[in-house]
Computed example of a mutant assay.
Amino acid sequence: MSVVIPVSADWLTLRERADAASRSRALATRAARMLRPPFTVHDLGSGTGSMVRWLAPLLPGPQTWVLHDWNPALLEHAARADAHDADGGPITMRTRVGELEHLRAADVEGASLVTASALLDVLAADEVEAIVDACVAVGTPALFGLSVNGRVELDPLDPGDRVFEAAFNDHQRRVVEGRRLLGPDAVLVTADLFRSRGWSVRVADSPWTLSSADGALVAEWLDGWLAAAVAERPALQEWADEYSRSRSAQLAAGRLRVVVHHEDLLAWP
Rank of each mutant, 00 (worst) to 15 (best):
G98E: 05
A166F: 01
T40H: 12
V203P: 00
S117A: 13
Q172N: 01
R94G: 14
S50I: 06
F164R: 05
A118F: 08
S196L: 09
D121Q: 12
L59I: 01
A142Y: 02
R80G: 12
T209W: 07
H261C: 13
S50P: 08
A9D: 11
D223G: 09
R151V: 15
V201N: 04
G224D: 04
S211A: 14
L27T: 07
A83L: 09
T64A: 13
V163P: 02
E238P: 07
R33L: 12
L44Y: 03
V7D: 00
W11E: 11
V148N: 10
G150H: 05
E99K: 11
V132G: 04
R247Q: 13
A235C: 03
A18S: 13
A166P: 01
G198Q: 04
V66S: 02
L12R: 01
W70M: 14
A227D: 15
A28N: 07
A78L: 11
L226F: 07
A81Q: 03
A125Y: 02
R104Y: 05
A106P: 06
A32F: 08
R17D: 13
R195K: 14
E109I: 09
C135V: 06
W54K: 06
S200I: 01
V128T: 11
E238S: 14
V230T: 14
V138W: 01
V187N: 04
V7R: 11
A83V: 03
E127F: 03
I5N: 10
A81P: 00
S22F: 06
L113D: 07
I91M: 02
A28M: 06
L35S: 09
R36N: 08
V136L: 13
M51W: 03
R247D: 06
L251C: 08
R104V: 07
Q63N: 09
V66N: 04
T92S: 08
L154T: 09
G88T: 12
R96V: 14
D19N: 10
V176A: 00
A116S: 14
L75H: 11
P60R: 05
G150R: 05
P62Y: 00
A124N: 01
S246C: 11
W11H: 10
P60T: 03
A252S: 06
T64G: 00
P234W: 09
V52I: 15
E101V: 05
